[in-house]
Simulated scan of single mutants.
Amino acid sequence: MTNTSTIARGGGNTPAPGRRRKSSARPTRASGLPAWAVPYVLLVPGLLVIAGLLLYPMVQLTVMAFQKVGLAQVRGTRPAEWVGWDNFQRVLDNEIFWSALRNTVIFAVVAVSLTLIVGTAVGVLLNKLGKKMSLFVVIGCMFAWAVPPVAQGVIWRWLFDADAGIINWALNLLPDGLSSLLFGRADWTGEPWLNDAFTLYVVLVFCVVWAGFPFIAVSVLAGLKGIPAELYEAAKVDGSGPWRTFRKITLPLLKPVFAVLTILSIIWDFKVFSQLYVLMNGPTNREAFNLSMYSVAEAFKPPQKLGSGAAISVILTIILLIITVVYVRQIVKQEEMS
């Protein structure tokens, strides 16, 4: 009797064993937001910071590129005057712009290539070393990467100083016959490495590669740690040499890593300014200008033409965007074909 009444009271609402009711409501968080909206809400603070630090200054820079802005406009005594495309026309008609563009492109090609080559070689070497020795070398390399750009320029300016530089002192230690055979001269006292545009950029390449290869090396090392050791063992059994193993196994598997590192290196080396400014001791040698130095010289050297400087910066940004888009599209096409 008792069992029957119990079934009669609750049997109508009790679901069958093994079955669960389906809820038509979408899952929500404790905050009341839908689950799909939570990631976007979490991105809002970061997007606001990026907009405040990057997007707003970029918009202001673009607006300034179409205005005549000088010291009077900065002081607020006169309003900025809209001049349309005149700043861009003036910049493109100046021979210094094309010289600076040539210097920028050639330097970026050489510096990016050498940084990637040296960084990759060091990364492979670190992967072959033991754990303690690898950690010791990584820490030593990262000291160079951690040096601020201005300090990098000071270090290399001191090394190549005409009067007290170590480079001239070391070259003078070579036997006169050997020095004459290798370089065509025996006396290096007072050699002004930083006065000539070509040797200045040679020193700048050394400076940028020295400071940039540790980041490449550590990134390549991290990528190598993710490659299964069985692939190298199989290649070794098949009689593959080190260079062929690198081309057939390491390089293809590290393509995504190299793609990111190449893009970052291009952006960094196209915008090199601090090291060049210190080595050049300010915008003094127009033949050695790159686009960044030319922009600063136009904007701040009397008479100040901030509109022209902004126009050069906009052109540099557009060039970087074009290079990045073209490079990324090539990578995507190669991935789709493979």
Rank of each mutant, 00 (worst) to 15 (best):
Leu53Glu: 04
Thr6Asp: 04
Leu54His: 05
Leu54Ile: 07
Gly190Pro: 12
Asp161Cys: 00
Gly190Phe: 12
Val314His: 04
Ser292Gly: 07
Leu320Tyr: 10
Thr189Ile: 03
Ala151Tyr: 01
Leu181Cys: 11
Leu173Met: 05
Ser134Gln: 14
Leu276Pro: 00
Val49Asp: 00
Ile227Asn: 03
Val118Lys: 09
Ala186Asn: 10
Pro214Thr: 05
Val147Asn: 01
Leu55Glu: 06
Ser23Thr: 13
Gly84Trp: 03
Ala186Gly: 03
Phe97Gln: 01
Phe246Val: 04
Pro17Ala: 13
Ala111Trp: 09
Ile331Trp: 11
Thr317Gln: 11
Tyr201Thr: 07
Ala297Asp: 08
Val118His: 00
Pro192Ser: 06
Gln275Phe: 00
Asn281Ile: 08
Leu178Val: 15
Glu81Gly: 01
Ser265Cys: 13
Met337His: 15
Leu181Gln: 15
Pro45Val: 03
Val209Gly: 02
Pro303Tyr: 02
Ala35Met: 13
Glu298Tyr: 15
Ala311His: 01
Pro192Leu: 02
Pro256Lys: 02
Ala234Ile: 07
Gln334His: 09
Pro34Gly: 05
Gln60Tyr: 15
Pro57Gly: 06
Met142Trp: 02
Ser295Asn: 00
Ile139Thr: 10
Ala108Gly: 11
Ala288Leu: 03
Gly223Asp: 13
Gln89Val: 15
Phe107Thr: 08
Gly226Val: 14
Ala229Pro: 10
Lys301Ser: 15
Ile322Phe: 14
Phe270Gln: 01
Glu287Lys: 07
Pro34Val: 09
Val74Pro: 03
Met1His: 11
Thr120Ala: 12
Gln334Asn: 10
Pro283Ala: 00
Val124His: 13
Thr120Arg: 08
Val154Arg: 03
Thr62Asn: 14
Pro214Gly: 08
Ala259Leu: 15
Pro192Glu: 07
